[in-house]
Each structure stands twice: as structure tokens, then as C-alpha cells.
Design a protein around this nucleic acid. Structure first.
Length: 501
RNA sequence: GGGCGCAUAGCUCAGUGGUAGAGCAUCUCCCUUUUAAGGAGAGGGUCCCUGGUUCGAGCCCAGGUGCGCUCACCA
């Protein structure tokens, strides 16, 4: 067979095309239609006592071959892990000749009985085998050894980060711990859903394509609908649509979905990321703090069986109640400055001490936020709710019931990083219109992250919106913490990369 | 966007101006309980790209591309 549709050939690939032709010539079908699997690697190893000498059918990818003339040991990898199989020419006959044409990377199905080798490794003694898919592109080879203390040492591990992210399928094949992270991610999301479902939430879906974007301070992606001939934005948040549903009478709603922000990429930012937003009618941010504690603790225990985690070398305990830290008090404590009475000049001077310089047009709220980020944020280690934020940077949050200039808002921090954002939602349409107006002024002054006025959202609120508590949690960042992954790219299967070439 | 670093065989990496290297993988031969199996032999390269310096460049210089780390911005 000629090389077809495969551009970057090398000798290894050419060789595999030759093997493919030989298989066809010998009457083997190298790409099968199915295989009735009844067992999996790890389960077989875990249940050896019951399965000893019992027949099993397994399938998986060949990860290692140790040929010894007319017999061979092969390691195959299935969804659960790896197991060794033992092939003898006496047992499989002609199939052994076909096996000579198989390679690391091929996917095979085998049937045989479970046994232990002389060296004590649980294996499958193959009676018949079938090639299920020929691999024509060689996978990166890594080998494993175990040292005296029983630690696994991996030799020639596939480590090129660029290739691992671009070709995640290869990464998943050869680096099993990567798969574990994504299985954990899946379990975390599933567990959050079940927690919310048992708390009587309704999961909804709101538009990704929005004529007016809002709900966060960020720059959007712009796209265009041809038939409507209108520009649309990819959402930066779900917030304004979910609160319309609160107006409509859904008392508890949530959405887990992708948001898109047209901003920089680094180890905590990907242009598309997964957000959980939820809204609860008749509750406030005090209620929400307790709810977050419960939810995170529930997920930690359900998925990991513990509340204490080793994260980047520090032990973090997610067990509630979390620390409450007033933004005003904590800044006063760290800097001696009372931000409620401080002038912009005083803030500017103080910021300079921390090496932060802002543009002249920066609002007082922005300066306070920056000062907090520089002076307090890095010192937060254990799960902490930072409460009560400046009104200027919180246009959708309700004014604090007792504290002038602040809103009822909190952010959850762990290890100096924000993991959630919540507030008593602003439900006064007159106040909301004023907030949008001042955002609009900031916009005209050049802040392209300031909110646009959303007239339809205001109209919804004018019909009457119950008091509501709202919450947003960045799922990617939560997963990073719980799985101890240093970059967001390690918890996103296909992170955004520049185009190849 | 700024600074620093990296790019050599399928994979992991050596190679500081003079014939392109190693281990694993691949191929041939031997080997029916091995496990980084073993023994004997062989093949395999756009040294990221484009220019420059030089008698001669994987190596030195300039520009570019991609990636990583870091700072800034942001969730």
C-alpha cells in the first residue's frame, strides 16, 4: 500500500504501512468493528483470587513488548490502567505470526485466563487475540522501573509541554496521571451538579451569543451573525441572563458553562474557561458564604475523601467555617490607611510604596482594589472570604446595609488566589440604572472593560426582582487547587495555543 | 506587551568553529514465565526558519516563529 494522506512520514511510519499491507495480504483486518470486552486491567489485578485461571476478554493499547522468540510478554493499557499479557505460539498459532507485525501503540483484543507469572505479576495467558486498530504513527516511548523503596521511576518520559498540550491524545496515552486529573475534574463537576440538584436548583442554559455583554469587567470576543446582519459578543458572564430568570420566578438557578474573555493568556487564564454561576432568591451574601463552605467541603469529601489538601507545597484545609476578612479592616491593618476616609492622593502614595502605579483616571474603587491586591492578597493562605467591596468596582451588587461606600460582596481566596465572587444582588432598578450610567461614563473615559447599559436587563428588574444572592466560581481554578496543578493548561484538555507553523 | 531561557533522530538528551552522537524505540538473527528482558548486528537527521560572519556554522551574529519561566493586566 502506498503512503496516503500522511505528510510527515519517516522510516518508522513507512515501516508500519508495510506491516499494514502484510496484514492485509495474510487476511487480517487491521481496523476492526468491535470487540466484546468483559474485564479491565485494574479490576483483574484487584480481584486476582477470584479470577485465577478464569477466562477474561480484555482490549487495549500495546504499551510494551518483550519478545522471546516463540513467546512474548506484552503490556496493554485500557481505561483502568495496564496489565501484562502472555502470548505463546503454541496457544495462538497463526495469530502469533500476525503478532510479529504488531507494534507498540496498536490496539488489540485478547481472550485468555488470568494467572501469575514466576515473578508474581498478574497476567492474562492469551488463547486468542485480535488486532483492533493498527497504529501507523509511533507513540513516544517511556519505560517504568521501580526503585528499592517501591517508587516508580519513569525513563524518557514524554515531557515536551508544547507537544503535550497540542497533542493531548498522546499525552493521555503515555502520561496516565494526566488522565487522572481530568477524571477528577469530571467528578468535581458532577458532584457540584448533584449538590445543587439536591438543594433544589434548576440547571438552565442562557445565550453564549449576546447583543450586549455584561456581568463582569472584561473585553469580549466579537462575532457576526450574517442573516441578522448584527454583531454579537461571546459572553463574558452568565449573570444578567440568570438574574432575568430570578425575575421570572425560578428561585434557584445555575449554569455551568464556558465564558470567553479576550485577554491575556497565562498560567491562570485561558480565553475560554468554565464558570459556575448560581442565584438564590430571598437570600443574601451572608447566606451565600455558608453555602459556598458547604458546597466546597461536600465536593472535597465526596471526590477526594478529605478536606485537607497539599497544594503547591502548603496544606490547605477547606473545612468550614472559612476565615472572614473585611477588606477595609485588612487594608487598615496592613497599611495603616482607612480607605473609607482616605483621599485619592493618599491612596496613590500608598500604592506607590507597593510599586503600583495606575493611570490618572483610575477610580477610588479601582485604587482600593489594587491596594488590596498588593498589600493583603499575597498573605492569604487558608480559605478566606474577603468581604465588603468598594461600590465603584461592583456595579451589580447591592449597597451595604450599614457601611457607606461599600457593597455586600465577598470573594473567596485560597493561597492568594481568587476562587469565587458573590454578592447580595442589586434588585433596585433605579439604583441599577445609576450604576450603569456611571459605568457608561467610565466607558466614555476610556475604560473598555466598564459595563454597557443593558436596557432589557433594567426592564426585567423594573418588573420586580426578589432579594437575591448570587455566586460565581471559576471551575478551572477550583480544579487546579483540588488537584494540585500549577497551570490552568493542566486542567483544560485542549488549552488555547498559537496556531502551528 | 517587557525580561530571561529553550528548540539536535519517533521519545529523552549530549555535542562552544573542522566527518552528526548516546540510551530507548525501529529493522535482521537467536531466545516458550519476561518485565527499563537478554545476546549479536544494522538502518535512521531540513541540527526550528531566514539571512550574515568565516576557507568552513548544530555551535558565533542579526531577524523571525513556537514553547517555557517571570513581570505587568485579567477570573
Amino acid at each position: 500500500m502506498e503512503n496516503q494522506n500522511i505528510n510527515d512520514t519517516n522510516d518508522l511510519i513507512k515501516r508500519r504501512f508495510e506491516e499494514l499491507s502484510q496484514l492485509y495480504e495474510k487476511g487480517f483486518e487491521p481496523f476492526a468493528y468491535g470487540y466484546d470486552v468483559d474485564s479491565y486491567s485494574k479490576s483483574i489485578k484487584n480481584n486476582f483470587e477470584e479470577l485465577d485461571q478464569i477466562n477474561v476478554k480484555i482490549a487495549g493499547r500495546i504499551m510494551a513488548i518483550r519478545r522471546m522468540g516463540k513467546a512474548s510478554f506484552t503490556t496493554i493499557q485500557d481505561k483502568e490502567g495496564r496489565i501484562q499479557i502472555y502470548l505463546r505460539k503454541d496457544d495462538v498459532g497463526d495469530e502469533y505470526d500476525a503478532f510479529k507485525l504488531m507494534d507498540i501503540g496498536d490496539i488489540i483484543g485478547v481472550e485468555g485466563y488470568v494467572f501469575k507469572t514466576k515473578t508474581g505479576e498478574t497476567s492474562v495467558h492469551v488463547k486468542s487475540m485480535k488486532l483492533l486498530s493498527k497504529s501507523i504513527r509511533p507513540i513516544p516511548i517511556a519505560k517504568e522501573t521501580t526503585d528499592e523503596e517501591g517508587n516508580k521511576i519513569i525513563h524518557d518520559q514524554f515531557t515536551d509541554r508544547e507537544l503535550r498540550y497540542r497533542q493531548r491524545y498522546v499525552d493521555l496515552i503515555v502520561n496516565p496521571e494526566v488522565k487522572d486529573v481530568f477524571k477528577k475534574r469530571s467528578a468535581i463537576v458532577t458532584t457540584i451538579r448533584s449538590f445543587l440538584d439536591t438543594n433544589e436548583f434548576v440547571e438552565v442554559e442562557t445565550p453564549v451569543l449576546q447583543p450586549i455583554y455584561g456581568g463582569a469587567a472584561a473585553r469580549p470576543f466579537v462575532t457576526h451573525h450574517n442573516t441578522l446582519d448584527m454583531d454579537l459578543y461571546l459572553r463574558i458572564a452568565d449573570e444578567l441572563y440568570l438574574k432575568r430568570l430570578i425575575v421570572g420566578g425560578f428561585d434557584r438557578v445555575y449554569e455551568i458553562s464556558k465564558d470567553f474573555r479576550n485577554e491575556g493568556i497565562d498560567k491562570t487564564h485561558n480565553p475560554e474557561f468554565t464558570m459556575l454561576e448560581l442565584y438564590v432568591a430571598y437570600k443574601d451574601y451572608n447566606w451565600m458564604m455558608k453555602f459556598v463552605e458547604q458546597m466546597v467541603e461536600y465536593v472535597a469529601v465526596k471526590v477526594f475523601g478529605k478536606t485537607e489538601f497539599e497544594v503547591y507545597g502548603t496544606t490547605i484545609d477547606f473545612k468550614g467555617p472559612w476565615i472572614r476578612l473585611s477588606m477595609v479592616d485588612s487594608i487598615k491593618e496592613k497599611t495603616g490607611l482607612d480607605i473609607l476616609t482616605a483621599t485619592k492622593e493618599e491612596l496613590k502614595t500608598k500604592l506607590k510604596k507597593y510599586g503600583v502605579e495606575l493611570e490618572d483616571g483610575a477610580s477610588k474603587g479601582k485604587m482600593i482594589d489594587e491596594l488590596f491586591g498588593a498589600a493583603v492578597e499575597p498573605s492569604i493562605v487558608q480559605p478566606t472570604f474577603v468581604v465588603d467591596y468598594p461600590i465603584e468596582i461592583s456595579p451589580l451588587a447591592k449597597k451595604h446595609r450599614t457601611k457607606e461606600g461599600l457593597v455586600e460582596r465577598f470573594e473567596g481566596y485560597v493561597l492568594g488566589r481568587e476562587i469565587c465572587n458573590a454578592f447580595s444582588e442589586l434588585n433596585d432598578p433605579i439604583d441599577q440604572r445609576e450604576r450603569f450610567s456611571s459605568q457608561s461614563e467610565m466607558r466614555e473615559a476610556g475604560d473598555d472593560e466598564a459595563h454597557q447599559i443593558d436596557e432589557d436587563y433594567l426592564r426585567a428588574m423594573e418588573f420586580g426582582m426578589p432579594p437575591t444572592a448570587g455566586l460565581g466560581i471559576g471551575i478551572d481554578r477550583l480544579v487546579m487547587l483540588l488537584t494540585n496543578q500549577p497551570t490552568i493548561r493542566d486542567v483544560i484538555l485542549f488549552p488555547q495555543m498559537r496556531s502551528e507553523k
